[in-house]
Design a protein around this nucleic acid. Structure first.
Length: 481
RNA sequence: GGCGCUAUCGUCUAGGGGACUAGGACGGGGCCCUCUCAAGGCCCAAACACGGGUUCGAAUCCCGUUAGCGCUACCA
């Protein structure tokens, strides 16, 4: 069997949406699995809405997700002459005809059809034009489109995900393939390009199912074999409607900004509408490629569940070594305008990543622990202290005294734990009661890594300084509340 | 309206005639672990849309109903 050729063909009229990203991913997975070729084709024929910056965003988004391609980016706009030639060939062969109907006339027919409750179908009035009349109108400079002459026959195909899908020719009409300005309409452009690029498998969104019979007719009229069609389900918002801006983040870039790891995003997207079978959830790239097949694709639309994405991101975060998290975390810190000086943040990332779901979470916790310009406690932290009552300052003073006596060389998680346990024991305190004030003072939160590790990561000097400040400022206040 | 697609826990899904008292994961609840939280472990609640067939037997096959979604442009 010859290796398959697939394509991802976005139009640069907006950002790379998660739906498009997933379509790209499925194409890529399929190509890589089968040792085939992935073509990237930018469908920029809608000049009004297409922009170069959108193209760049799409390319960046794919790169971020780790989706690469073997040919392209090819720009559909450059193939106008071939599209036109194809249309003219169909015209010459009597498989298409000129239509002089104006937009206004067509609209009128459409509204009339709607009013009478029947489906609009072009009535082929221009097909009945005599050749003399056609010549006269061409000479007169009347604008015309080219319409495909659709045979009244059944059109069916075996979709790789849906099985057999059948349309009746009588439900379709003679659709326009070439605009009056000589540019191709989508259906022609796609077929012309897919033929020229020898695409063997068309993997695209469900919403293209109704275009497919028209495209099949075009393939046949142009004298070419059909590719395999695989129509993948849509991605929906939590309300079951097609995913759109009002659902919040829908662009791949939004998730990058939210601190999602590309590997997690890719894994999550792959599982939206595809399953390797069984209970597998976390799939490394190589395994995904190995396991990917078209018949693992779901027929049903899937709801995009951000919570599960974040869970999955957390899984990747915990599993990844801190060295690999370093760059994205530093980038995030920079964006937060946090300067930690020359300090190596990797140990902090290591200490903190298990409790994080996003890179932003990690960066924030790094900042809390290392940012020298950060005030010891915010309002939330003060509130926590108040809630803890007089015990807070009393216990903090006890542990601080002990910590102060720890030499720099002994400032390790192990010996810190021993010291702290010693204090608690000798004072008859529960370990938690002894440690929680330190945690709150250092992080302004009741949640963190184990306190001994926290102290180690923050460092002796900074720990003692912050603890001292807090003890001083809250020494009396805690007791009075 | 017409045409098409779809239908398993709230969500992502496993399942492709008997292995189903329907499995896993997210989320929710509980317990264990524990200096807090997370992770981890254990447990609980939670679904085959409905109605007909076919069959000894149906979540699985067929038909219908209902619902949702998509398309219905000189957009892609």
């Amino acid at each position: 069997m010859t290796p398959p050729r697939v394509r991802f063909a976005p139009s640069p009229t907006g950002y790379l949406h998660v739906g498009g990203a997933r379509t790209a991913l499925f194409n890529w997975l399929f190509a890589r699995h089968a040792g085939g070729t992935m073509v990237l084709r930018i469908e920029d024929t809608d000049r009004e809405r297409s922009t170069e910056s959108h193209t760049k965003v799409i390319l960046d988004g794919l790169a971020w997700l780790g989706i690469d391609w073997d040919e392209g980016p090819l720009f559909q706009g450059e193939y106008g002459p071939r599209h036109k030639a194809d249309a003219e060939r169909l015209l010459a062969e009597g498989k298409a005809y000129r239509c002089f109907c104006t937009r206004a006339e067509l609209d009128a027919q459409r509204t009339a059809a709607e009013a009478s409750g029947t489906a609009f179908r072009y009535d082929r009035r221009c097909l009945r034009l005599t050749s003399g009349e056609i010549q006269r109108r061409i000479q007169a400079g009347d604008p015309f489109t080219i319409r495909f002459l659709l045979e009244d026959a059944e059109i069916a195909w075996d979709d790789a995900v849906h099985g057999r899908i059948t349309f009746q020719g009588r439900d379709l009409d003679d659709f326009v393939i070439l605009r009056s300005d000589g540019s191709a309409i989508y259906n022609l452009a796609v077929v012309s390009d897919d033929i020229a690029m020898r695409i063997s498998h068309v993997i695209r969104g469900d919403d293209h199912i109704s275009n497919t019979p028209k495209q099949i007719a075009l393939y046949r009229a142009l004298g070419h074999d059909l590719p395999v069609f695989a129509h993948v389900p849509m991605i929906l918002g939590t309300d079951g409607k097609k995913l759109s801006k009002r659902h919040g983040a829908t662009a791949v870039g939004d998730y990058q900004d939210k601190g999602i790891l590309p590997a997690a995003m890719r894994n999550f997207l792959a599982l939206l509408g595809w399953s390797p079978g069984g209970d597998r959830e976390i799939l490394p790239e190589a395994e995904m490629i190995e396991l990917f097949t078209l018949d693992g694709i779901q027929k049903k639309a899937a709801v995009f569940d951000t919570t599960k994405l974040e869970w999955m991101n957390g899984q990747y975060l915990s599993a990844l070594p801190s060295s690999e998290l370093l760059d994205p975390v530093l980038r995030q810190l920079k964006q937060m305008s946090v300067d930690v000086g020359g300090v190596d943040v990797r140990p902090v990332i290591e200490a903190v990543k298990a409790r994080s779901r996003t890179i932003i979470d990690v960066a924030e916790q790094v900042a809390v622990r290392l940012d020298p310009s950060r005030a010891p406690l915010d309002a939330k932290g003060e509130g926590l202290i108040k809630k803890m009552g007089p015990a807070f300052s009393a216990n903090l003073r006890l542990t601080l005294e002990a910590l102060d006596a720890v030499p720099a060389g002994g400032w390790t998680p192990e010996s810190l734990l021993a010291v702290l346990k010693g204090v608690a024991e000798s004072r008859g305190l529960k370990l938690g009661d002894a440690l929680q004030p330190i945690r709150v003072a250092l992080t302004g939160s009741t949640v963190s890594e184990p306190v001994n590790e926290l102290l180690a990561v923050v460092g002796r000097e900074r720990s003692l300084a912050v603890l001292g400040q807090v003890a001083h400022r809250w020494g009396g206040a805690g007791a009075t509340t």
